[in-house]
Amino acid sequence: TLATPAVRRLAMENNIKLSEVVGSGKDGRILKEDILNYLEKQTG
């Protein structure tokens, strides 16, 4: 899974598996926005 260290840390802090997040960046890269959108969906 393609993600920057900052995105990986954000995911780890929120107990998110990067494999569950759909990346919207180039080549499927997971962006910070993708993590935040995933969190919004989870908290509903």
Score class of each variant (00 low, 15 high):
V7E: 04
L31F: 05
G28S: 04
E33M: 09
I16E: 03
L39M: 15
I35M: 06
T1R: 02
L2Q: 04
S24I: 01
T4F: 04
E40V: 09
K32A: 15
G25D: 03
P5I: 09
G23R: 01
R9A: 12
R29C: 12
L31S: 08
T1Q: 04
N15A: 07
A3G: 06
D34K: 00
G25R: 02
N15V: 01
E20A: 10
K41W: 07
R9G: 06
K41H: 12
L31R: 07
G44H: 14
E20C: 05
I30C: 02
G25W: 00
N15S: 05
P5K: 15
L39Y: 07
L36F: 05
A6I: 10
Y38H: 11
P5Q: 14
V22W: 05
L36R: 11
N15L: 03
T43L: 08
V21W: 00
L10Y: 11
L2I: 12
R29V: 09
L18D: 03
K32T: 07
G25S: 04
R29M: 10
K26I: 08
L10G: 02
L2Y: 09
E20Q: 11
G25Q: 03
S24P: 01
S19E: 14
A6T: 11
K26H: 08
L36A: 11
L39N: 09
I35P: 03
R8A: 13
G23P: 11
R8L: 08
D27L: 05
L10S: 03
T4P: 03
A3E: 07
E20V: 06
K41F: 07
S19V: 08
M12I: 04
G25L: 00
K26G: 08
G28K: 04
S24W: 00
L39T: 09
L31T: 15
V21D: 03
G44N: 04
K17E: 09
N37T: 14
L18N: 02
R29I: 09
R8W: 06
V7Y: 00
S24F: 00
R9W: 06
L18A: 03
T1G: 11
R29T: 14
T4C: 09
L39H: 09
N14P: 00
I16S: 02
L36V: 13
P5T: 13
L10K: 06
V7G: 06
I30Q: 02
D34R: 00
N37F: 05
K41G: 14
S24D: 02
R29S: 11
E20T: 10
K32P: 14
V7W: 00
N37W: 08
E40S: 13
L36K: 10
N14G: 06
G28A: 03
R8G: 05
A3F: 04
T4I: 02
A6Q: 14
T43H: 11
